[in-house]
């Protein structure tokens, strides 16, 4: 972190990042709806992973080279990103629709701190939870696989990377969603932007131009670059995809921060 960024998070004076973090942590955990939504993420991702694995047929010999059950077990990431994204958006837009942003900024008027605390708290919670969920899903899904199919193991080439990157992906989506919330501010528009970015636009592009452009979209990167133990030739490599996601997250967050700081609250 550069000194400029660091000093913007530590205004001269009494309060600082620790106060903002504590405030956002209390706010996050005191909303019941957040816990229900996170429960949906946990249950949904595990259930989708297990069901997908239970329905995975043994590969025909010609498909054996590209057969990747690790990709199947991580199918629930598509659902997880939607729910995580909506919670992240609401963490910011909910403050505007309820009016609580006024109280928040009265306590912590330095706005970069507020956004950093929101992103850190929700991104951190999501990252820890998602890594646990993908690991649990991996083992539960493996157990649901046809006995005839060799079970993937975390020690197989690329498997551990695929599993951990999928969890990290949801952490990045959490931060990106906080950024979208700050950027767009209105709940409906922000969720629209999120769904458009994650589902609609890449699906349309995939239909129109195949993977040429669609492979650069987050959902495509998650499914075809990160959650694969065997990289797919026409897609981005795992690390290229991951680096691009980090870049997207940084850009969206920076844009959200700029709007939050510039605009009247």
């Amino acid at each position: 972190m550069s000194t400029a960024v660091l000093s913007s998070l530590m205004p001269a004076g009494g309060y600082g990042l620790p106060h903002a973090l504590r405030m956002e942590w209390i706010k996050l955990r005191s909303l019941r709806s957040t816990w229900w939504a996170l429960l949906v993420v946990v249950a949904g991702m595990i259930a989708i992973g297990v069901v997908t694995m239970a329905n995975t047929k043994p590969p025909s010999p010609d498909k054996l080279a590209t057969f990747d059950p690790t990709n199947n077990v991580l199918a629930g990431v598509a659902l997880g990103q939607l729910v995580i994204g909506v919670i992240g958006v609401l963490l910011v837009t909910g403050e505007y629709s309820s009016g609580s942003i006024r109280a928040t900024l009265a306590a912590v008027p330095h706005r970069p701190l507020v956004l950093a605390a929101k992103a850190a708290v929700f991104g951190g919670v999501t990252l820890v939870l998602s890594e646990l969920v993908v690991l649990v899903t991996f083992f539960a899904g493996g157990a649901a696989l046809y006995p005839a199919i060799p079970q993937p193991s975390l020690t197989d080439g690329g498997v551990l990377r695929a599993v951990l990157m999928s969890g990290a992906y949801l952490g990045l989506i959490a931060v990106m969603a906080v950024g979208i919330g700050a950027l767009v501010r209105h709940t409906a528009s922000a969720i629209g932007a999120l769904v458009g970015l994650l589902f609609v636009v890449p699906a349309v592009l995939a239909g129109a131009t195949g993977t040429a452009v669609a492979k650069f979209f987050p959902t495509m990167i998650a499914g075809n670059s990160l959650a694969v133990s065997r990289p797919m030739p026409e897609m981005l490599t795992p690390w290229a995809g991951f680096a691009l996601l980090v870049l997207y997250t940084a850009v969206v967050y920076a844009a959200g921060l700029r709007v939050l700081v510039k605009r009247d609250a």
């Binding site: 209390i26 306590a107 912590v108």
Partner: peptide, 12 residues
């Protein structure tokens, strides 16, 4: 109580 507790944390 939760609303004020969060504000108290932020405001030191």
């Amino acid at each position: 109580h939760q609303h004020l507790t969060a504000l108290a944390a932020g405001g030191g």
